[in-house]
């Protein structure tokens, strides 16, 4: 039995059966020893011829290149560059920035913040405006009549006539 650095004829035949005649396909760890045995053995030549014949046949198997349509479809589906956020990285990395990011994960928090501020201003302006409205004169007299007229004779009657609620009993008499 011919042997080269641990490589036996049986093992070499097994390599040819599994990997074919091309040493590049043989296992790295056994390639050198197998090649050494091949160079010194005449009887292995027939086996190599058989293996090489099948290798050559297998090389004839059809193979197509990627079509232009496949390449175009993949390019169309590639990841797209996201639009850069106007928020500075410093803001995003600060704790306030992270909190804002949780509350408003859709980009800059300036937009919702502006909306909230505008609502506040509108509310304050409206409130102040309503409180400064001057009521009509006759309505004002209705509200102050009991205080002004309570000390005068017939004040109760006037108040009653003005339907003031501080004299409900009188209203029933």
């Amino acid at each position: 039995m011919e042997k080269s650095s641990g490589m036996t004829m049986e093992r070499l035949e097994a390599l040819l059966e599994a990997y074919g005649a091309e040493p590049a396909r043989w296992p790295d760890a056994e390639r050198q020893a197998a090649e050494a045995l091949v160079s010194r053995s005449q009887e292995v030549r027939l086996r190599i011829e058989e293996a090489r014949r099948l290798d050559l046949l297998l090389a004839e198997a059809p193979l197509e290149a990627p079509s232009a349509m496949l390449t175009a479809r993949l390019l169309a589906a590639r990841p797209r560059q996201l639009v850069a956020s106007p928020v500075s990285p410093a803001v995003r990395t600060s704790s306030l920035g992270r909190l804002l990011g949780l509350l408003w994960p859709y980009g800059s928090p300036a937009f919702p913040a502006g909306a909230v501020l505008a609502s506040l201003v509108l509310g304050i302006v409206t409130g102040v405006g309503v409180s400064s409205i001057v009521l009509p004169q006759e309505h004002a007299m209705t509200t102050v009549a009991p205080a002004e007229l309570s000390g005068e004779p017939g004040g109760e009657i006037i108040s009653l006539a003005l339907a003031h609620t501080s004299y409900p009993e009188d209203w029933t008499q």
Partner: peptide, 21 residues
């Protein structure tokens, strides 16, 4: 590619698409 670079996608396809196919 993850950042959306088209050229990188093209190079990666040239390098590996044929073998994958």
């Amino acid at each position: 590619v993850g950042a959306g670079d088209q050229k990188a996608c093209e190079v990666l396809m040239r390098r590996h698409l044929g073998r994958t196919l």
